Amino acid sequence: MRPLLRFAVILLGSLLIAAATNFFLVPYKILDGGVIGIALILNYTSGINIGLAIVCCSLPIFLLAWLKERDIFYNSIIGLLASSLLIELLGPLQYYFLYYIEIGSISSAIIGGFLMGTGLGLMLRFKASTGGTDLLAKFMKRYIPLNVGVIIFLSDTLIIGAGGVLISKETFFHSILTIFSGGIATGLCTLDNK
């Protein structure tokens, strides 16, 4: 595969992830699963920058990628840095987006999850990721006969459950909608992808 095409897909996926995070999840304090979900929990509870938290939480998974498959490691480093940087760059635009586009929290959870899942799915399809649980799911798929989207959905549910202590029932429900729609989008993007 041509490196330029892969790089373009990684940037597109990162942009979708950043838009989903800043414009659909953060305004309603909705969680996503995976490393991004952990970063959102840290942001909501202590104000830590989401992009920085994603990079720090991804380090152990990147060590695994370095040991197991270097090609995915290199492509995922680009995805990790691009998505983390774009999340921080799009953050200040959140106000303008919310000013011009009004949608409810349920719609925001579904759209945000679908954008997030599409961004992750596109990267996985082109052998890249953001280095989070999506990369871990890609490795687990070798040993568990499940679609990558299903594996991500299950791990996301665990993280949402752990974060449930810190959020309201309404936010917990919205977060479940987010990971459900994200799992569907990721599954569709990675369908028949070996």
Rank of each mutant, 00 (worst) to 15 (best):
M1A: 01
M1V: 09
P3D: 11
P3H: 15
F7D: 07
F7A: 10
F7P: 09
V9T: 03
V9M: 12
L11D: 09
L11R: 00
L11N: 03
L15A: 09
I17G: 08
T21W: 13
F23K: 05
V26M: 07
P27F: 12
K29G: 14
I30T: 08
L31N: 15
D32I: 13
D32Y: 14
D32V: 07
G34Y: 09
G34T: 14
V35D: 06
I36E: 08
I36D: 03
G37F: 11
I38M: 07
A39E: 14
T45I: 13
S46E: 11
G47R: 05
G47N: 03
N49I: 02
N49F: 12
I50F: 10
I50W: 12
I54Y: 02
V55H: 02
V55T: 12
L59I: 09
L59M: 13
L59K: 11
P60A: 09
I61N: 10
I61H: 01
L63I: 14
L67T: 03
L67C: 05
L67Y: 06
E69F: 04
E69V: 00
Y74W: 14
S76V: 00
I77P: 15
I78V: 13
L81W: 06
A82K: 04
A82D: 12
S84E: 11
S84I: 05
L85I: 15
L86H: 03
L89M: 05
G91P: 04
P92L: 01
L93N: 07
L93G: 06
L93E: 12
L93M: 10
Y95H: 11
Y96M: 04
F97V: 15
F97A: 13
L98W: 13
Y99R: 01
I101Q: 02
E102C: 08
S105F: 13
S107K: 08
S108K: 01
S108I: 02
I110C: 01
G113K: 10
L115Y: 06
M116H: 07
G119F: 12
L120M: 07
L122R: 03
L124C: 05
L124W: 14
R125C: 09
R125V: 10
F126K: 02
A128P: 05
T130L: 05
G131Q: 03
G132L: 00
G132N: 08
D134K: 03
D134N: 00
L135D: 01
A137N: 07
F139D: 06
K141I: 05
R142W: 06
R142Q: 00
Y143G: 02
Y143M: 15
I144K: 09
P145W: 01
N147W: 07
V148T: 14
G149P: 02
G149L: 08
I151R: 02
I152K: 10
F153P: 10
L154G: 10
D156N: 02
L158N: 10
L158C: 11
I159P: 08
I160H: 06
A162N: 07
G163L: 05
G164M: 11
G164S: 07
V165N: 12
L166S: 13
K169T: 15
E170I: 11
E170Y: 10
T171N: 13
T171M: 10
F172C: 08
F173W: 14
S175F: 07
T178V: 03
T178R: 01
I179M: 03
I179H: 00
I179L: 14
G182R: 11
A185H: 02
G187Q: 05
C189L: 10
K194L: 15
K194N: 12
